[in-house]
Design a protein around this nucleic acid. Structure first.
Lengths: 96, 96
DNA sequence: TTCATAACTTTCCGTTATGGAAAGTTAAAT
DNA sequence: ATTTAACTTTCCATAACGGAAAGTTATGAA
C-alpha cells in the first residue's frame, strides 16, 4: 500500500490550509486563522512549515503598520496537494 | 471550517487500516502489517487504538498455536470512516 | 507435563509533533 | 521616538510515533 500521502500536507491543520488555499487563490493571515480556529502562533508555525517545503507563495502588500501578507499555494504546492488528493482517493477508494 | 475530521482515523496508519478493512470485510494481522509495511508493535498499537475507540470487531479463530484474529470495522467504525471520508470530500472539495 | 511455536502485546526509550501563552520583531504612520 | 498591526519565536508541557526487545498466551508435540 502507501499511495504516497504527503507528510507535509497530511496533518490536519496543514491539510485544511492547503484545501482553503487551493480553493481560494489567495488568503490573508487573519482569515486563515479564523477558518482554522487556531491561535496566531499555531498558524504561523504551520505556514512556515509549508513555506519551508516550498509549497507557498507569499505576497506582501503595504498597509497600515507592517505590510500584510497574502498566502497562496506555489506551483509545487498545488502539485503536491493534487498528488495528495490522488493518494487519498486511491487509499480511500473515493470516486473522482 | 473543520468538517469533522476524525482524529482517531486521520493519522496515516490508522487511515490505511480503516481503508483496507472498509474494502475487505476481514483481514488478518500479518496481511495488514505487510500492507502497511510496519512492525508488529506498531500495527498492534494502532489496532488497539482503533479497538479502544470501538471501531473494530475482532473474530478469534482457533488455529495452530494461539488463535488467529481477523479484524474488521465495527458498525461504529464503518460509520466513523464514512463520516471521515465525507469530511475529506468537503475539505478537499473532492467530487463524490 | 514440560517444551516449542505462532501470534500478538507491552515496555523501554528516544525523536518529533502540537499547542497555547507570552515575549519579540518589524514597518509605517504619528 | 512611539504606537500599532501583523506576524514570529521562544518557552514549556503534553501527546504522538517508531522500532527493538521482552513478555503473553494457547495449542500441539515430545
Amino acid at each position: 500500500m502507501s499511495a504516497e500521502l504527503d507528510p507535509v500536507i497530511h496533518p490536519v491543520h496543514r491539510l485544511q490550509i492547503c484545501a482553503l488555499l487551493a480553493n481560494a487563490d489567495e488568503m490573508e493571515f487573519a482569515l486563515l486563522r479564523d477558518e482554522l480556529g487556531v491561535s496566531d502562533s499555531v498558524l504561523s508555525k504551520q505556514l512556515k512549515y509549508l513555506d519551508d517545503a516550498g509549497y507557498l507563495t507569499i505576497r506582501k502588500v503595504p498597509s497600515t503598520g507592517r505590510p500584510r501578507s497574502w498566502y497562496s499555494l506555489s506551483k509545487d504546492g498545488q502539485c503536491a496537494f493534487q498528488k495528495h488528493l490522488d493518494a487519498l482517493r486511491i487509499i480511500a477508494a473515493l470516486a473522482t
